[in-house]
Computed example of a mutant assay.
Amino acid sequence: MATLNIKVHPSFHQKTLKDFFDFYHVGKKNQYKLTLQGVYIDGKKAVTQHHIEQGQTITIELEDMILPMAAKAPIEVIYEDDDLLIVNKPIDLLVHTDGIAKDDLNQRVTYYMARKGYKQEVLPAHRLDKDTSGMVIYAKHILALSYLSYLFESHQMEKTYVALTTPNLRQKKGRIDKAIGASRHEDKQIINDQGQSALSLYEVIEQNPDYARLKVSILGGRKHQIRVHLAFIGHPILGDKLYGGLSYERLALHFHQVSFVHPTSLVKVNFESKVPF
């Protein structure tokens, strides 16, 4: 059985084990499951009502899993520690299986971790469209997954994309605050006042007669958000056939930079992925 060991951060001093789990947004059902499997404070069996102190070690027993079949394909690792795995997703690759494709990023990550002897399911805290490249952040255990998923959902991840669009934008910086919903008539997303709120902030960082290079930060993370928003202002992403973009060798959209508070050090970290266009 694998174990997860976490040194108690000063911010949890004299808090209960339940407070600790709540900070990571672990649900009540999973808190019960973990304590049933085995949670220890400095080697002594603990329950959620137990108080913890700075410098103590919380040990959580994790049940070994039989990992699914995985694609034997390489991955590009940007960063890895005991909690996180950040990989670079190429274009034309799904994060999650669609039940048809024989290869996806999750399978590649599973194969990578299995080769290292890891017996836990490593899951992504978010996703990217098939045609978008860039970083995908994986969690190595349930605390990290619950925590990172919450950061994404509560807009506490600072996400920056780079995109190429048609040139001659009227403004060097802009704000697109338009709700997005699914089209009833086509397999695409549209601006819809009854849709989900979405905010995109863009800045032109390069411009020439052929294209404009934009840095785009988003709140919301709606499906196709950047693609829909940039098309709405008349500057669709190059290579985006679905939303009227000009012909290009690929969809020119890349998840370039992310900043967030690390789950165990509780220090803000920043990661970047090289833009391939």
Rank of each mutant, 00 (worst) to 15 (best):
M1T: 11
N5D: 15
N5Q: 12
S11E: 15
H13K: 11
K15F: 06
L17A: 06
L17G: 04
D19H: 13
F21V: 07
F23P: 03
Y24I: 03
K29E: 13
Y32E: 11
K33D: 14
T35D: 10
Y40G: 06
I41T: 09
G43T: 08
V47G: 11
V47T: 12
T48M: 13
G55D: 14
Q56A: 02
T57D: 10
I58F: 08
E61R: 10
L62D: 07
E63I: 09
D64H: 13
M65E: 15
L67K: 05
A70V: 09
K72R: 14
K72E: 10
K72P: 06
P74S: 07
E80G: 01
D81F: 03
L85T: 04
N88K: 10
P90H: 02
P90F: 03
D92M: 11
L94W: 06
L94C: 03
L94N: 08
V95P: 00
H96F: 07
H96C: 06
D98T: 05
G99N: 07
I100H: 14
K102R: 11
D103K: 12
D104C: 15
Q107C: 06
R108L: 00
R108A: 00
V109S: 02
Y112Q: 00
K116E: 09
K116M: 10
G117Q: 12
Y118K: 04
E121C: 09
V122D: 07
H126A: 02
L128Y: 00
L128G: 01
L128C: 00
D131H: 12
S133E: 01
G134F: 04
G134I: 02
V136H: 03
Y138N: 02
K140T: 05
H141R: 08
H141N: 14
I142S: 11
L143N: 03
L143D: 04
A144L: 07
A144W: 00
L148S: 04
Y150W: 11
L151E: 00
F152Q: 03
F152D: 01
F152L: 02
Q156A: 09
K159G: 00
K159Q: 04
Y161K: 02
L164S: 01
T165Q: 00
T166L: 14
P167K: 05
P167S: 06
Q171C: 10
K173D: 10
K173G: 09
D177L: 13
G181T: 08
G181S: 09
I191M: 10
N192L: 12
Q196V: 09
Q196S: 13
L199W: 06
L199H: 08
L201A: 04
Y202D: 02
E203N: 02
E203H: 08
N208S: 08
L214T: 02
L214I: 05
L219K: 14
R222C: 04
Q225N: 03
V228N: 09
L230H: 06
H235C: 09
P236N: 04
L238Q: 04
G239K: 02
D240H: 05
D240I: 05
K241Y: 13
K241E: 15
L242F: 06
G244W: 12
Y248R: 03
A252H: 04
H256M: 02
Q257L: 07
S259G: 05
S265W: 01
S265N: 05
S265I: 04
V267A: 12
N270K: 14
E272I: 07
K274G: 05
